Amino acid sequence: MDSRPGSTTSVLRTVIGLYLREAGGWMASTTLVELMQAMEVPATLTRTALTRLRKKGVVVAAAREGMAGYELDSRAGRMLERGDRRIHNPRSMDADDPWCLISFSLPESERERRHQLRRQLHWIGCGMVSPGLWVAPDYLRKEIEEILESLDLGGRAVLFTTSRPHVTGELRDVVAGWWDLDAVAALYRDFIKFHEHIPAGEVGANPHTFATYVNLIDRWRMIPYLDPGLPTDCLPSDWPGGEGVAIFQQISESHALASKAFVNSVVGSR
């Protein structure tokens, strides 16, 4: 989440997330440079971005058979596995699905951990009812528990499973105060505008297909984290999520395998 979609670092992170594991967990530096050149990114910018990702703990420099290259940091591997579930399988609630409440209280002396907790809850799609009470679809419970464990706050928070909230007035109006749905809708609309003119149908295993697919994932991957997948009757009537998901799935179906074949051809040439 700390890289702007479309930036060199973000695009490289997307390439690594999509293909480094499938390449045996390691890629030569020259391979990564060549793949990024297919994205019209110069080699100098790719090398700078690799340094940034190494400092962030995403990749680790590792030579194999005398060739310089990179492998995933073990923590990044777990993060990417969680990301796979979110990015490629966007979920949404039905009206009767359970919700999860997260209640916690941390003193001012622990404000840094409190800030980190709130920040991470926000970035996985939780909404804030009040500073110490957050809400999410119950299918996010495992990710919430992982955040609490990583911050050593498992004993400082209580999770409740609850049915549909009962509020005064329309739930749609109340929910709009828990999540910044306008910001999420803007992400969807930007995504739709960028991709709606890409034709459907069979494509070849070439640099253009690869670039199209990587850009698709790079511009999409933040959306299913920030969008909790609320029931339809909790969303604005002009919610663009359905159209965004449909475009994502259509291009994924036509481009994913051909893009992978192109990457395999580049990896194999090394």
Rank of each mutant, 00 (worst) to 15 (best):
I16A: 02
A200S: 15
E22H: 15
Q37N: 13
D96C: 10
E253I: 04
M39I: 10
E71M: 12
W239M: 06
L117I: 04
A157G: 02
V214A: 04
I192T: 03
E143V: 06
M27G: 06
P236F: 05
G244Y: 05
T8P: 08
V174K: 09
R172F: 04
E202P: 11
R75Q: 11
R82I: 06
L32R: 04
E202V: 15
A76F: 14
Y225K: 06
L187C: 08
Q120F: 08
G201E: 11
K142N: 09
A95W: 05
G69K: 01
A38F: 01
M222P: 03
W179I: 00
R270T: 13
A205Y: 03
S237M: 13
Y225Q: 13
V214R: 02
A256W: 10
M128A: 12
Q116P: 05
A246L: 08
V245C: 09
E34I: 11
G201N: 10
Q249E: 14
C126A: 11
A183Y: 05
P131F: 04
S92I: 03
P224L: 03
H208F: 12
E170P: 00
G77M: 09
V184D: 00
F194P: 00
M27T: 06
E143S: 15
M36G: 11
W99T: 01
F248V: 09
D152W: 09
S252E: 12
H166W: 12
G125E: 07
P42G: 07
L140T: 02
V58I: 10
F194G: 10
G268P: 00
G69L: 02
I87E: 01
L181R: 11
G25F: 07
V129R: 02
V167S: 00
M128F: 06
S92G: 11
T44N: 12
L171S: 04
V59D: 05
E40H: 12
R47A: 05
H197R: 15
W220N: 06
G57K: 06
G17V: 07
V175F: 06
W220G: 07
F194N: 14
W99S: 02
L148V: 05
L171V: 04
H88N: 06
H88A: 09
K55P: 06
H122V: 02
M27S: 07
W239H: 10
S150G: 05
K260E: 13
V33N: 04
D152E: 14
V214G: 01
G155N: 14
S252Y: 10
E146I: 10
G204K: 15
I217V: 15
Q37L: 08
M222E: 15
H115C: 11
Y139K: 06
A95H: 14
E202F: 13
G77V: 02
R4K: 14
F160M: 13
A205N: 04
E71H: 07
C234I: 02
V41S: 09
E71Y: 03
A157L: 05
I251A: 01
A68V: 05
D182A: 13
V129M: 09
G204V: 13
D2K: 15
H255M: 03
Q250E: 14
W178E: 01
H197D: 15
G204Q: 15
R52G: 07
A246R: 15
S7M: 07
L171P: 07
P228C: 04
T161M: 04
S259F: 03
R54A: 15
V184R: 01
E143M: 09
P199C: 02
S259C: 00
